[in-house]
Amino acid sequence: MTTPPGPVQAEPEAARPTSLSPSRASDFMQCPLLYRFRVIDRLPEKPSEAATRGTLVHAVLERLFDHPAAERTAPRAKALIPGQWDRLLESKPELSELFAEDDGGERLARWLGEAESLVERWFTLEDPTRLEPVEREFFVEAELESGLRLRGIIDRVDVAPTGEVRIVDYKTGKAPRAEYADGALFQMKFYALVVWRLRQVLPRRLQLVYLGSGDVLTYDPVMGDLERVERKLLALWEAIREATDSGEWRPRPTKLCGWCDHRAVCPEFGGTPPVYPLPVVRRDGAEGAPGGAAAERPAGE
């Protein structure tokens, strides 16, 4: 007896971008073509050990605050790692590919040990027994007067007894050099802008906790910062809209290209992008068919 085939998993339909997050804004600033591959084409990307370790550590630090203050110790936090790893595998089975060829389990054990070290280092930077976050893994979304929707997930929000707000983000990598600090703070200023738009509260402090190097970067924003970020985001969004209409997404080669999953379809590496899946809007406002001439032009020309 022939077993009927299971349902075919449909590819997600391409759609025009409707909102902006810190990650996607950074993608476009890094390389417009990368933004297209991730947001418009939704090309799959292989999971990485570093990114998955970051997700695991974030989950552990979030769950630790479920426990009473006195129980928020390093041993308790490290004990949460195996369970959180199992939860990650359950929600994203594809992560098992990371250690598919690790027959002896040595790479997985080493990787989990690295996660333990990052979690343990956090206790040298902050004292969770003295913290009572108001929000953890806090999804925020706000619409600007222009209609642009901003959205993101804040790792932690602390509120002092006096009402002052602190936004905290955990990074499992190393702190950037001083000349790159502004780029690192862009995400935090983005969040501060969204909180301001949502609650009319200017966060007192933005704090980046770098577990990879044991550094804490803090910044106290002023209204001028948020106004500049808003202007930057509006200009960025206008550029994204123009690229969406024209189908012209230019690659921007940098040293980061070496870590990109999409080199095989990138013109900078001899590849050809997929046919553009959205209608191309000509300068006169008329729409062309998906993958029109403007879309097929090599993005690097």
Rank of each mutant, 00 (worst) to 15 (best):
T2V: 14
Q9F: 05
Q9M: 10
A15P: 01
P17F: 12
D27F: 13
F28Y: 15
V39I: 15
R42C: 03
E45P: 00
E45H: 03
P47Q: 05
A69F: 08
A69G: 08
E71R: 12
G83N: 12
Q84R: 14
D86T: 06
S91M: 09
L95N: 09
L98C: 12
E106I: 09
L108G: 05
R110M: 06
S117M: 10
V119M: 07
F123Y: 13
P128Q: 04
T129S: 15
E145K: 13
L148N: 11
L148F: 10
G152Y: 09
T162M: 03
T162H: 07
V165I: 15
I167W: 07
T172I: 09
T172R: 02
A175W: 01
A181Y: 09
D182G: 03
G183V: 10
L185W: 04
Q187K: 04
A192C: 10
W196Y: 15
R199W: 13
G214T: 10
G224W: 03
K232F: 02
A239D: 15
S246E: 05
P253V: 14
R263H: 00
C266S: 00
V275P: 02
V280R: 12
V280H: 05
D284N: 12
A286P: 01
E287H: 03
E287R: 14
G288H: 00
G292L: 01
